[in-house]
């Protein structure tokens, strides 16, 4: 085996390989997948000289630790966390030189939920439909990381940028405010139900995952019962199952579904949702 690889020392609660996903295959039942906090994924790649299409590691809550078999530049972005190299503190959100054989650790998140670990050359897992992203709904892409697993690294793309990238990353929100556009099935809810959606205080449910951000709060009142015949579901959909609590569809969401979508949160607001820890207050604000 080549020495351009890393060994997983501590996989953490859930660490997956992510890139920009596999859009364009929804008609085959293939979710888009890809990094939930895409700006953080892009920044991590920039800091180590990778293109945005290179694969990074997306951690969940508890971070992860990897041993690099070869010396490489790495960077940790996204959820703020202590970063160390062989136990010595290293900067978060900046390029870090990791010697061959050293352990790079992204510690538990101090703010936010998901950190991104980029290594120069990118994680060189086998692509599926043009993407190395792990899709937890349909099982495409590499397995989630496990302790002891070995992941290949690609050859470095070139030297990292000479000047450090400015890191104006928004901190994780104390309150998650999600603007939405009503529809396409807002007519399945009463006026009171839609008012609940646009005014009530919800919280991020602990049942949140890469498929959807689930909410706790008041149920939306329906104007009609039953289910729709299956229809295409967008990223950012606020799908409302029979319990009346909206689920915000994230990147591993099913491509079709039969529960009505009351509104859609535009993609540019989703990175904040990816960093909201369970219990965070959520408000949905009508855009028009």
């Amino acid at each position: 085996m080549t020495d351009r690889a890393l060994t997983v020392v501590r996989a953490g609660a859930l660490t997956t390989v992510q890139d920009l996903g596999r859009p364009g295959h929804a008609h085959l039942g293939v979710p888009r997948s890809g990094a939930l906090d895409e700006p953080a994924h892009r920044l991590a790649n920039r800091l180590v000289g990778n293109p945005a299409t290179a694969a990074t590691l997306e951690t969940t809550v508890t971070g992860c630790a990897v041993r690099l078999r070869t010396a490489a530049t790495a960077a940790v972005t996204g959820a703020a966390c202590p970063v160390s190299v062989d136990g010595r503190p290293a900067p978060w959100g900046a390029p870090v030189r990791v010697p061959a054989g050293a352990v790079l650790e992204a510690g538990p998140a101090t703010h936010g939920l998901r950190s991104y670990v980029a290594v120069a050359g990118g994680i060189d897992a086998e692509p599926v439909l043009g993407s190395r992203a792990t899709d937890l709904l349909s099982g495409l892409g590499p397995e989630p990381l496990a302790d002891g697993a070995v992941l290949p690294l690609g050859p470095p793309y070139g030297p990292p940028p000479a000047a450090a990238d400015a890191v104006p990353q928004p901190g994780p929100p104390a309150e998650l405010v999600l603007p939405f556009l009503p529809g396409p099935r807002d007519d399945w809810f009463t006026a009171a139900g839609l008012r609940t959606l646009a005014t009530a205080a919800f919280r991020v449910s602990p049942a949140t995952n890469r498929i959807g951000l689930r909410t706790e709060g008041p149920a939306l009142e329906r104007a009609r019962d039953g289910e729709l015949p299956s229809e295409g579901m967008p990223l950012g959909a606020l799908q409302v199952p029979p319990n009346g609590l909206p689920v915000l569809f994230l990147h591993d969401h099913p491509t079709t579904g039969g529960y009505p979508v009351a509104g859609v949160v535009p993609e540019r607001f989703l990175p904040a949702a990816a960093q909201a820890v369970p219990g965070t207050p959520v408000r949905f604000v009508r855009l028009r």
Binding site: P23, H27, P229, S230, E231
Partner: peptide, 15 residues
């Protein structure tokens, strides 16, 4: 267009 997703009685276009 990024996605063209037919379903039971609909076609969804995104992007």
């Amino acid at each position: 267009v990024r996605e063209i997703v037919p379903a039971a009685r609909t076609v969804f276009l995104d992007g």
